[in-house]
Simulated scan of single mutants.
Amino acid sequence: MVNVSNAVKLESIKSFQSTIGKLEKALTQMTEKGANTTLVEKRHKACCIGLAVLENVWDQKLHPYTREELAEARKVLIGLMPSIESAYAKLKEGSPQRTLLERRIKALELAGEALEDFYERNSTKGVE
């Protein structure tokens, strides 16, 4: 993984924490309404894993996730990118919303890269 500044690390962690908080709020509201929460639950878990992987790479914090969970999280996080990029393109340059989405996109890219690096390291070791 490429070296990133402490400012980008902090922004990425805050972005994931914010996203996780929003997903938790959405889950609560959807559960109260009896709505299907499968998609939001998948996204929530993927964001928790993305945050854990970045904290692992940057702060050597351990995480409890299996190889399969990491693979699924990577797919989900990558799948979020087109809709976020589409929303980003519609926002006015310099707006606070656009800045937040820039940070979210960067955080997702970094988490995806960290997950990819994990696979490359572990596939050469024969880890399943």
Rank of each mutant, 00 (worst) to 15 (best):
L39N: 11
R74E: 08
V8T: 10
E55Y: 10
E128Y: 14
D59G: 01
G112E: 14
S95N: 14
A89F: 06
K92N: 12
L101W: 06
K75E: 07
T124G: 03
K22R: 15
V8A: 08
L110E: 15
E109L: 13
A89L: 11
K92C: 13
V8F: 07
V127S: 15
A7T: 08
E69H: 04
R43K: 07
Y119K: 09
S5R: 06
C48S: 13
A111H: 04
I105W: 06
R67C: 05
V53H: 07
K45G: 04
N122T: 05
R104W: 03
V53Y: 13
A71Y: 01
E85P: 00
A111E: 08
S5E: 11
E113I: 11
M81V: 12
T38K: 09
L27D: 07
L108K: 08
D117V: 07
G34S: 05
Q97S: 12
A111G: 12
G21R: 12
L91W: 00
A73K: 13
Q60T: 08
L51N: 01
N56R: 10
T124N: 05
Y119W: 14
N6E: 15
T28C: 12
S123Q: 11
G79K: 13
R74H: 07
Y65T: 11
R74W: 04
L54R: 09
S123W: 09
T28H: 15
G34K: 02
A71C: 04
E116L: 10
G94R: 04
G112C: 15
T66S: 13
R104L: 14
A87L: 09
K42E: 14
L10R: 12
F118G: 00
M30C: 06
M30A: 15
G50R: 10
K42Q: 15
N122Y: 14
A73S: 15
V8D: 08
G126V: 08
K75G: 04
K61M: 03
A35P: 01
A46W: 00
E69I: 02
H63G: 04
Q97A: 14
H44I: 02
K125F: 10
E24H: 13
G79F: 13
K14H: 13
L39E: 07
K61H: 03
N3K: 11
Y119T: 02
S15G: 09
E113Y: 06
L27V: 00
K45S: 12
S123L: 14
V2E: 05
D59Q: 11
E93P: 00
A87W: 03
L100Q: 12
F16P: 01
L23W: 00
R103I: 09
C48T: 13
E116A: 07
A111R: 04
E102M: 14
P82C: 02
N3W: 10
E11P: 00
L23M: 05
L27W: 00
D59C: 06
R121D: 04
L77W: 01
M1G: 03
K25Y: 01
N56T: 03
M81P: 04
N6S: 08
I84N: 10
L100A: 14
G21W: 02
V57E: 05
V4N: 05
Q29T: 08
L110T: 14
H63L: 06
L51H: 09
L91A: 10
L39Y: 05
T37W: 06
K92F: 09
L108D: 11
C47L: 03
S15T: 12
G112D: 09
L51Y: 05
T124F: 11
